[in-house]
Design a protein around this nucleic acid. Structure first.
Lengths: 226, 226
DNA sequence: GTATTATTAGAGTATATACTCTAGGGAGTC
DNA sequence: GACTCCCTAGAGTATATACTCTAATAATAC
């Protein structure tokens, strides 16, 4: 693998594990056993590394949230969207942790992220619309759908922070993808009141699969749906 | 005012305006026109300053969220809780911005914050319970109430981050308390499906008072309810 | 007044961090 | 062999940051 790609990969790994704030360019170089000079040959500065990683993240989520317009939406589709979004969140989890600081430091990132959020909000809203078309949820007026989508977004993007700050007793408590996906339980909680009788039971039992286990009573098991 | 209190006050102000990460102890001392030595005479380190500020925050919110058990809950009570919580969030807004980093650095803070979150979640759940007792919302089973409360908490604590990252086009865009309180609109959105017919109209029109104005079309006006 | 204690100034320090600069190796081409 | 281009090493630097140390001054107690 090319040094440039190795830098991106290792940076992401270190950022995710330690937080961007705790990872210096010298750390990254040392981790890869290359010289700082080498790193700076490939990237002008730390911001450029982060920006490029963000672009990968963006591409991934955009790909997942591409809503097919030629067919109705199924429950499986919805599950797929939820699973995918949380997978993406997991792979680039450093990003939301230091979001405000990162955006303050890099205007490109700020502006790109703003648009990214808007695209995601539109996608969520579109999903609600299509779920209503399929008779899975009751149709809602546009204005309510907007506010609901925003709430879904807030829950999704901040579920991890909740786990890391309020849930875990120890700082080093290793967070698992499985725990992260319990966020799906929270998202489905938002949908409950809007479910149609025809699908109510199905969605409720889907939701049940993501029910959080008690903190520190975590049992090791596979994610319920893949 | 005593130097010690001045340090706490100015630190909070600087943290809120610039972010804890961008405020050094030397900055604080310079801002107060005192020497670093003086600052370190009053506080052993930066963490101690932050910890003490957190304790004030905690005290404030605990005070606001004290639910009186001797009388039913009114809509005005609910409005008061929402307004108060967002006021507190505003006054100590630096805190949630760098939460993860702060908790990683100070184990006392981590453990206190964990308990603080749990108290808040209980209070929210208790509010839902009493709102049901008063016939404002439909009663819900305990398990649903818990998940709903958590969603309310996620929306409340992360509304500000949303405004600062996705909403504002410029980094320096000054956030106002008024904008922050549009978070109340989002919280009330969560309640909509559970409202009883008797109160539905009233709550919907309360919610309307917090409706967000379009970004950059912000008109200067007072917060609708005080 | 004197002893004691609380407070303050301000220079200084150890460490870290993002980044630079120069020199050179290796591979391909003519 | 010489030239070029891409890549790499590694010492080095300017700046920042959290914090220390000593000495002096103000406040208080007796």
């Amino acid at each position: 693998m090319k040094t440039r790609d190795k830098i991106l990969l290792s940076s992401l790994e270190l950022f995710n594990d330690l937080g961007e704030r705790n990872v210096t360019t010298n750390h990254i170089a040392a981790y890869l056993a290359i010289s700082p000079g080498n790193l700076y040959y490939h990237f002008r500065n730390k911001s450029d590394i982060i920006y490029e990683i963000f672009q990968e993240y963006e591409k991934l989520v955009d790909f997942y949230l591409d809503i097919p317009e030629d067919r109705p939406m199924t429950l499986d589709d919805m599950t797929f969207y939820l699973e995918s979004v949380f997978d993406g969140l997991w792979s680039y989890r450093f990003f939301h942790r230091d979001l405000e600081y990162l955006l303050d430091r890099d205007p490109r990132l700020r502006s790109d992220y703003r648009e990214f959020t808007n695209r995601c909000l539109s996608a969520i809203s579109r999903i609600f619309e299509k779920l209503a078309d399929s008779g899975i949820i009751e149709p809602q007026p546009e204005s309510l759908r907007g506010a609901m989508s925003l709430n879904v977004w807030l829950v999704i993007t901040n579920w991890m922070a909740y786990l890391k700050t309020a849930h875990a007793a120890k700082a080093s408590a290793s967070l698992s993808l499985h725990e992260l996906k319990q966020g799906i339980y929270q998202v489905l909680t938002l949908e409950i009141p809007y479910l149609t009788p025809a699908y109510r039971e199905q969605v409720m039992s889907l939701r049940e699969q993501y029910r959080p286990t008690m903190p520190n009573q975590e049992e090791k098991r596979e994610a319920p749906v893949s």
